[in-house]
């Protein structure tokens, strides 16, 4: 092993800037060939190609399904409990479990729970809110929310070493390659 890079202890990763999604995709392929497996890309618009290339998995739908089922059970369970167990009221011998009239609220709570799970789940899985992140300190990164595309090789990538990543990303059609300082 070569001697540790002088900045290794405080380097969060190496960030390269691109002017188009196509260049970013090329760079991702290049990075994969160089053996990096934990790369992250930053784009101003959602791009399925990029997340496909990075091989991201997405568990959100499972959580939402669970949230919806929980909502349905809560909605119906609450009404059943109120009408049949806790406060049964005999009105002319009609069935206590008048399930058709329990459907609307069951439905609304299904939607409510599923929607809350969607939003809170998306934020939680994304690790948001997180007001600060090391990449924000890189000059020019503010354009990731406008028209620039970025590729990060983070320090937690098993193959990471700062010099190697700098060299690898400089081989791509990037505007600039910079080290991201660790806060």
């Amino acid at each position: 092993m070569s001697a540790p890079h002088k900045h290794a202890h405080r380097c969060f990763g190496v960030l390269a800037e691109y002017t188009s999604g196509a260049e970013l995709l090329e760079a991702i392929e290049h990075g994969k060939r160089a053996g990096y497996t934990k790369m992250e890309a930053y784009t101003p618009l959602p791009m399925h190609e990029v997340s496909h290339a990075l091989g991201h998995e997405n568990d959100l739908p499972k959580f939402v399904l669970a949230g919806g089922i929980l909502g349905a059970c809560t909605g119906f369970g609450m009404q059943y409990y109120a009408a049949v167990i806790h406060y049964p009221l005999n009105v002319g011998g009609r069935p206590l479990n008048s399930w058709p009239s329990f459907i609307p609220i069951t439905f609304e709570l299904t939607i409510l729970f599923a929607a809350l799970t969607t939003v809170l789940g998306m934020l939680a899985l994304n690790g948001l809110p997180r007001p600060h992140h090391p990449v924000f300190s890189v000059p020019g990164f503010e354009n990731a929310s406008r028209d620039r595309f970025f590729l990060l090789v983070p320090h937690y990538d098993p193959k990471f070493d700062a010099d190697g990543a700098l060299a690898a990303l400089r081989e791509t059609r990037s505007l600039a390659v910079q080290e991201v300082p660790h806060p």
């Binding site: 992250e40 930053y42 948001l128």
Partner: peptide
């Protein structure tokens, strides 16, 4: 909330 346009987030 610290949105940074990460592909994983998108």
């Amino acid at each position: 909330m610290g949105w940074r346009g990460a592909a994983r987030h998108w």
